[in-house]
């Protein structure tokens, strides 16, 4: 089984910032908007290089979504930047009517998703955003796992016509993905295994890789880890092919088990290939203050939880 290592750690939001900077140099139609969180979203380099293509909106996210929709009329490709909570729940109707229903080419880029936002607590830790966004017709939903993948995704979504929700996070995490091109909707198989499929997204991908090593070393279980960066449209064939072989699946995400990746996989399997599934995610709860590491442990979002879920699902085969 392939084992993953890393030499460097970085936050995924820096991948967004660097991807945006590169887009600023290569695509004159890319414009950026921010609602008073330039530093958090790592947008300063883009702003320095393209001041005329940056719009500081102030603390007014609803206005930001509308302005972004308007900027597409005239050929611009707007990237909005704020926390995931303020990118989705706060402005759901603006996104629904002015962006999704109006088919506007807006890229909603959302940092600080999930409990790993940390000490600010539950008011800022959205665990419902994937569900909200994947329910919007025509919306592409992407949740990246490390710096490299976030940077590549940021660049890739500029080439895709249509609304996109790009979700990433605050904490520093291992960089383990290669600097590859990013293909929207294409799952990445990270390890080969025959006993269980682990479908993970975002920060849980690294945890899934850690879990796969423990599973092999301590339990002799060979896990096939799939990195699902695109939750919608879901790479259904990749998941079916793997589960056909392994006969069971664990999904892992930093999101409520209601409405997230797990439910998308569950719908797929129920209709095409019914097999046992276990869900790693938050259990219909809000988060709280704490360090990202403490919160990952307390809310069962780590390799240990994935190992338990795998041992449980294998027994149900």
């Amino acid at each position: 089984m392939k084992r993953y290592t890393y030499t460097d750690k970085k936050d995924t939001r820096s991948g967004f910032g660097d991807g945006l900077t590169e887009l600023g140099r290569t695509n004159p139609n890319v414009v950026a908007l921010c609602a008073d969180l330039i530093g958090s979203l790592k947008m300063q380099d883009f702003i320095n290089e393209n001041p005329e293509r940056f719009f500081q909106i102030g603390i007014a996210e609803a206005n930001m979504m509308g302005i972004a929709a308007g900027l597409t009329i005239g050929g611009k490709i707007p990237f909005t930047g704020t926390f995931a909570n303020f990118s989705t729940g706060r402005v759901y109707d603006q996104i629904r009517q002015s962006i999704a229903y109006s088919d506007k080419n807006v890229k909603i880029c959302a940092s600080h998703a999930g409990v790993t936002l940390g000490e600010d607590g539950a008011t800022h830790q959205i665990l419902e955003d994937i569900g909200l966004m994947k329910m919007l017709p025509g919306m592409t939903v992407i949740n990246t796992c490390d710096y490299n993948q976030t940077k590549a995704a940021t660049i890739a979504i500029a080439k895709h016509h249509g609304p996109v929700y790009l979700r990433f996070g605050r904490p520093v995490v291992p960089i383990f993905m290669p600097e590859d091109e990013f293909e929207i909707g294409k799952a990445i198989k990270l390890t080969e295994g025959k006993d269980v499929t682990i479908v993970a997204t975002g920060h849980l991908v690294w945890e899934a890789l850690q879990a796969s090593e423990v599973l092999l070393d301590a339990h002799g279980i060979e896990a096939e880890v799939i990195n699902i960066h695109t939750i919608k449209p879901l790479d259904e064939e990749a998941i079916l092919e793997s589960v056909k072989k392994t006969g069971c699946v664990v999904t892992a995400e930093e999101h409520n088990i209601f409405g997230g990746l797990g439910e998308s996989v569950s719908r797929l399997l129920t209709t095409r290939l019914p097999k046992p599934q276990e869900f790693v995610g938050t259990q219909d709860t809000f988060g709280e203050s704490g360090t990202p590491e403490q919160l990952m442990v307390k809310y069962g979002l780590n390799s240990k939880s994935i190992v338990s879920a795998v041992r449980k699902v294998i027994k149900r085969k």
Partner: peptide, 24 residues
């Protein structure tokens, strides 16, 4: 050029379109 009906959103959209005109 935009869906409307859920009220209060049109001015923001127009602002974006107006700023795109300036950029262009």
């Amino acid at each position: 050029r935009i869906a409307s009906g859920s009220l209060g959103q049109g001015m923001s959209v127009a602002l974006g379109a107006a700023q795109a005109k300036k950029l262009n």
